[in-house]
Structure formats: C-alpha cells, structure tokens
C-alpha cells in the first residue's frame, strides 16, 4: 500500500540525483504533495512559491525556456482549474517542458470536502493541445510515470492521490506514455479504468466472476494521448465498456472512451464516476460508497448493466 503522491516524492529524489536540470516548485503544500523530500536534498533546485499557483506555473514556464525540467506541485483542484489560463497560454501553447503534478485528486481527498476535491482536472487538462495527461493506478506506477514524464519533451499533467492504495500493476511493467494495458482476459464486458479505480475494477472483477460475468479490465494510465487501439479492440470483442474514474463523468475518461468508441466501433458505453455534482466531506470509503465507486457498488452496477445490455 502506497499513496501515489508518496511515490511521486520518491521519484523526484531519483530524478534530482540523476538529472541536474530537474527543478521542483511547490505552492506551500510540499509536505502534502511530497515534494518536501526533494527540497531537503536539493535545496538550490527547489522553489517554494508560497500560496501563488499562477505565479508558480509562470515561473516553471520561464525555467523551461532555459532548458530546465520543472515539476510544479500542488493539489489537483488548484493545479489545473485555478491556473487554467496560465497553463494554457504560458505552458501548453508554447509547448514548454513543464510537468504539473496535481496531488489529492478526486473524491478520496475526503474530509476536506468539495472545495478541495479536484473532480474536473482531467477534463480541463485533456482539452488542452500539447498536454499529456497521466493518472497512475498505484505507487509503483506513479513512480515510473514520474520518471517517464521527466523524459517526455513537453507539458505533462500528472494526477496523484492522497490515500494509500494497493499495488495492482506488476512492478516489472514498463511505463509507456499513451499505452494502455489489458490486465486480464474477459469477453462479456470491459471495465475501462484510470487511476486507483483500476484497483477497484480488479476487485470488482472477482465479485463478478462469482456471479458468472467475465469482465476484462483495461487500465488507461494515460488519458492523452489515448490508446485508441486498445479501446476499439475491447469494444469489438466485448460490446460493452464501463468506464471507471474518480472524476466527473463529464470530460474525463468516460468521455474520452465514448468519443473513440462512437467514432470507430460503436458499442455500449456506460460511465461510472462522480455524477455532475460537487463532492462533500466524509471519509474516502464513505464517499466512494455514496457515489457508487466502492467495490461493492461497482460490481453491483456492472452486473446490472451487463444484464440490461444482454437483454436489450
């Protein structure tokens, strides 16, 4: 069990040692985003920008123009939405080599409530030209994703989470930006998931097997560029895709998958995620359950959808 933000902090340490061009910025949240470890080890390459996210993004852009590889870290809710125009005009448009890490993504922020639960960041980042959008499933993948983001030439948004999550992606899996993965076989339907919801999907699959439903899990750690081939294959082979994300069902993974399927290989797509509403305070477990994203709720819903589609 490891939080993806912890893995991010560890990967930054490795990057700090290997590449002197890597710089890290934070907006007074370094203890939470886990960039503080980098600050401790490489103080001359860490800049705390205070509570000023817009300035942080602009400063990162300036560093990138001079050949640096800046990682700007803050909460997901601030990392994209609050500074959207700065990212659009100072980073994405000039295609600068800026990495933006949004920790505390999604509803599992928990008790802090709606103001701090980034549920729109993937949608906002995805619509920007030149932007790569990554949402790793577990600590190991977040570590590999951070290293790959540093190698990628251009802007990257890396979405991380607050809670500790189980390791579900085999540790020896190589991370390739834009390349999704089939985590098991299954012909009845496909669960297409991103972020830590992939762990939920895998657990739900076990429940479903007991009910006689064989579900495939396609994990998409990269929302952009999207692995369209893998989605089309799943659409053709299973006919029903259920998307799972800790994000609004509008504009994120669900929308991305629906776009690909509707244009390439029509199949039934159902989106599970946050409905069109803000979150609220509660424990991560309570919130996942309330909004239908717990293992139990997901498997129940998927079984129902499988039945409906079969009889339609």
């Amino acid at each position: 069990m490891k939080a993806t933000r912890d893995a991010y902090g560890e990967a930054l340490l490795e990057l700090g040692e290997k590449n002197k061009e890597v710089m890290v910025l934070d907006a007074d949240l370094s203890k939470s985003t886990k960039s503080a470890k980098f600050a401790e080890h490489y103080p001359s390459r860490f800049f705390n920008m205070g509570i000023s996210e817009a300035d942080m993004i602009g400063t990162a852009a300036g560093l990138a123009t001079a050949g640096k590889i800046p990682f700007a870290s803050t909460f997901a809710v601030f990392a994209v939405g609050r500074v959207y125009d700065q990212i659009r005009n100072s980073v994405a448009y000039p295609r600068l080599n800026v990495k933006i890490a949004g920790s505390h993504g999604g509803i599992t922020v928990g008790e802090d409530g709606a103001s701090h639960q980034g549920l729109e960041d993937l949608a906002l980042a995805r619509v920007l030209p030149n932007m790569v959008v990554i949402c790793p499933a577990d600590g190991g993948e977040a570590y590999r994703a951070t290293l790959e983001a540093a190698k990628w030439e251009g802007p990257v948004y890396l979405r991380l989470g607050r809670p500790k999550v189980p390791e579900v992606i085999p540790a020896d899996t190589s991370f390739k930006i834009g390349k999704g993965m089939e985590l098991n076989q299954g012909e009845d339907l496909t669960l297409v998931s991103t972020g830590f919801m992939t762990g939920i999907a895998l657990e739900a699959v076990e429940e479903l097997v007991r009910e006689g439903v064989r579900a495939r899990v396609v994990h998409l750690h990269t929302l952009k560029p999207l692995d369209e081939e893998l989605i089309i294959k799943a659409a053709k082979e299973t006919g029903l895709l259920v998307t799972l994300e800790e994000h609004s069902i509008i504009g994120g993974l669900g929308s991305a998958v629906a776009e690909v399927v509707s244009e390439n290989s029509p199949a039934v797509v159902r989106r599970l995620g946050m409905p069109d509403c803000f979150g609220e305070s509660g424990s991560p477990e309570e919130l996942l359950d309330k909004y239908g994203l717990s293992v139990e709720k997901v498997s129940k819903k998927v079984k129902q959808l499988a039945g409906e589609v079969k009889h339609a």
């Binding site: 602009g58 852009a61 300036g62 001079a66």
Partner: peptide, 13 residues
C-alpha cells in the same frame, strides 16, 4: 503572466 516567466528565466540563470 510575463513577469512570472521572467522570474523563472532569472532563476535558471
């Protein structure tokens, strides 16, 4: 936005 970017350049130098 330009002054932030200029700061980044100056920090890089």
């Amino acid at each position: 936005q330009g002054l932030s970017v200029a700061n980044g350049m100056a920090l890089a130098a």
